[in-house]
């Protein structure tokens, strides 16, 4: 029940932050636009002039993609650099916005205002960024475990004439990797909440403490992650089913498609908020905050009077 309670509570916390949701979506979209611009500059202009543009893009013609790659020619390194730069923009933007949103979702009574959002973003950005970089350690470990499993399967069945055991082992390895990624991702949510609530800047400690929390409560964390993963998958399914019906339509349908795309993005942001909110809900239950340092009793003011 605990994961479900946290899940619903997370959704509730997200729902109560509608203004923050709008602000988050807006700046999220700005970052994405900054990242997408170089790609637009490469892919779109040539076809905007071509009579075949509609046809080539609708069919996602392989030959046309090859034409673009070929036409890029000497500019290819610049395009690769643009893609890398775009990825960096996306990563920094993601961390910055999360740094603003998490404190407001973690503290039930906190009042939202753009100022508090940006203040939180500024205060928590560096700890969150460090946390993002430290998170490569557990993700790397998950990859290493999966790699070892692959080697083991190869050693056991690699020389055989049947692919079946290797393929089944690959499914199992893939499933394990997905679950490990899910657990690590949830652990990083707990770490963010802890960093935001405690005002601590010790990202590495928060990272490992949260991984320890997951290690001690694997069932609760797994089911919490599973709830969000299932919701995300359902959203993706619904989006694809609707989007394919709108593809290739007239101007009105294109507008509807754009609205649908943004609704999908919004829904995913809500899920992200809900995941942070759920982590904030569970954190004190699974890992109570240490008792506050005893504060000295206030000294009567008149004792200082000369």
């Amino acid at each position: 029940m605990l994961p479900l309670i946290a899940y619903w509570s997370g959704l509730g916390r997200a729902w109560r932050r509608k203004r923050m949701l709008a602000l988050y979506w807006f700046f999220h979209t700005l970052c994405a636009a900054a990242a997408a611009l170089p790609l637009m500059a490469v892919a779109v202009p040539q076809l905007g002039r071509s009579r075949l543009g509609d046809e080539l893009m609708r069919q996602f013609d392989l030959a046309w993609l090859a034409e673009i790659a070929s036409a890029a020619g000497a500019a290819a390194p610049a395009v690769v650099f643009a893609i890398l730069a775009a990825s960096a923009v996306l990563l920094l933007g993601a961390v910055f916005l999360a740094a603003g949103a998490v404190p407001l979702l973690a503290e039930e009574g906190a009042l939202y205002s753009p100022e508090t959002f940006w203040r939180g973003a500024g205060r928590n950005f560096w700890p969150f960024l460090r946390l993002a970089l430290y998170s490569f350690i557990p993700y790397g470990a998950a990859f290493a475990i999966a790699g070892l499993l692959r080697r083991g399967a190869q050693a056991l069945w690699g020389e055989g004439l049947a692919a079946r055991p290797l393929v089944l082992a690959d499914y199992a390895r893939m499933a394990l990797l997905i679950v490990l990624f899910g657990l690590i991702s949830t652990a990083m949510d707990f770490a963010k909440v802890r960093l935001a609530l405690s005002g601590s800047r010790q990202s590495l400690r928060a990272c490992f403490a949260s991984l320890r929390l997951v290690w001690r409560n694997p069932g609760v964390v797994f089911w919490l992650w599973a709830c969000f993963a299932a919701t995300g998958a359902a959203l993706a399914w619904a989006y694809v089913e609707l989007a394919v019906r709108l593809e290739g339509g007239g101007a009105a349908l294109v507008v509807v498609l754009v609205l649908l795309q943004q609704a999908y993005v919004l829904a995913r942001i809500v899920l992200r908020f809900a995941a942070w909110g759920a982590a904030a809900e569970l954190d004190p239950i699974l890992r109570p905050l240490p008792a506050p340092e005893p504060t000295p009793a206030p000294v009567p003011v008149h004792d200082y009077q000369i």
Partner: peptide, 8 residues
């Protein structure tokens, strides 16, 4: 970007 947000 949302995937990145979810992972890190």
């Amino acid at each position: 970007m949302l995937w990145l947000t979810a992972l890190v």
